[in-house]
Nucleic acid binder design. Structure first.
Lengths: 225, 225
DNA sequence: GCATATTTGTCCGTATGTATA
DNA sequence: CTATACATACGGACAAATATG
């Protein structure tokens, strides 16, 4: 547990409201960016000391993140960064088909505008070859799509889903070939929605999700035993 | 905090795996059955003593249930049994339309059989005028419907959603007039699904959800200020 | 508005049980 | 199989926030 000392830069961020939630925020970010790799065990002792919080508080944070499926709690063995199986990936995409598919049929001008905004970010990032940012913009794009369901709870589910997916993105060796091709597909989707071509938009979305899932599953195959 | 002593009967149930999860299970059940009423504050001191667990452990259980939206955590004020607003109820039904609506289009013989099973329970309970059990069977019925999406995550969302709804059922003064009428509607829905009449089944579901939502919102109106 | 009592938030030390080298 | 490391759970402590009179 040597590299945990890098966490100490985050200590200053603890100070506002509930400590456990702050800790959860920090850890969530660190997991998203891959600082903590999937499968890695998070030691109560080491992280608690690095962040300067007690084990009780840290355990509360762990509980929160376990419930978000970012950590996995194994009884008497500790918490580990979640490792998604190929089955998990399929499940995530099944949910996305349901939620995003429903959103397509409830398109609104404001929603489409928000999607355009995220799309623009993605185009910009792609042009500058910031492929990780392309991935982030893509996530925002689909979050904006899902938001047209106009439901707080569906937004929460979607946010959690995409956070799980970020866990998987780290297995993609080449972020360009994974994230890059989705920019034009997002453009197409927005154009169809703006034109009121609901059915064609739904089909374009299906095809997008099928391809993205297939790519991820394919990248998984070598590692799964 | 006098009636908390009744909780002590639950002490013996603590013995298997993680204590915090056991405690959460007990409290979840107690909330579902209305023993703890919406809005009620759950005292760390009293409940911890009643169940014979430490405050730290109890707080972990509270965290779990807060994340399930059954409890609400107010900083420095404690945890309270969640009180759903009319807006929450609408949101829950918006999610149900999305998830159950998608399930209708993926009907399977096994899934329909599971729905029939829950339906039978409901019919039996209705005949014997056990209206609370009619409500429980109705929940199982729709859980079986949602399960046809064949997604663990959607099942989880659905379970949580229905647990939240149980919170609301307690405001219904007359359980018969609320739960009773849904038996024939469930029968109709199953019949349409079995006949492969997907579109008509989807419309029947929509109409069911609209009516159930309207009834709940109506029951809420007098209490909301 | 104030003083007091209560309750939560957080931490620590420790004992016990469980998994792994 | 033993030893070690670690998670689980407890109980006590105190400061800070909140509720009560």
């Amino acid at each position: 547990m040597e590299h945990v000392t890098a966490l100490e830069h985050d200590r200053e961020r603890l100070g506002r409201s509930s400590t456990a939630e702050k800790v959860a925020d920090i850890l969530r970010e660190r997991i998203a960016e891959g600082f903590f790799a999937p499968g890695e065990r998070l030691s109560e002792e080491a992280i608690g000391r690095a962040l300067g919080v007690s084990r009780n508080t840290l355990r509360e944070a762990f509980r929160l993140l376990s419930h978000e499926r970012l950590l996995e709690h194994k009884l008497n063995r500790g918490v580990f960064v979640r490792v998604l199986s190929a089955g998990d990936v399929s499940d995530v995409y099944r949910v996305r088909r349901v939620i995003e598919g429903a959103a397509v049929r409830r398109a609104t001008p404001e929603g489409i505008a928000a999607m355009r905004e995220a799309l623009r970010e993605g185009e910009q990032a792609a042009e500058e070859k910031r492929w990780r940012d392309v991935g982030t913009a893509n996530i925002r794009f689909h979050q904006a799509l899902a938001r047209m369901n106009d439901s707080q709870r569906l937004d929460d589910v979607m946010r959690q889903l995409l956070a799980e997916l970020r866990l998987v993105f780290h297995v993609m060796i080449d972020p360009r070939s994974f994230h890059g091709p989705f920019v034009p597909r997002n453009q197409e989707l927005v154009a169809l929605l703006a034109a009121g071509e609901t059915d064609r938009a739904a089909r374009a979305l299906e095809s997008y999700l099928d391809d993205a899932e297939a790519l991820l599953i394919e990248a998984y195959r070598p590692r799964e035993n």
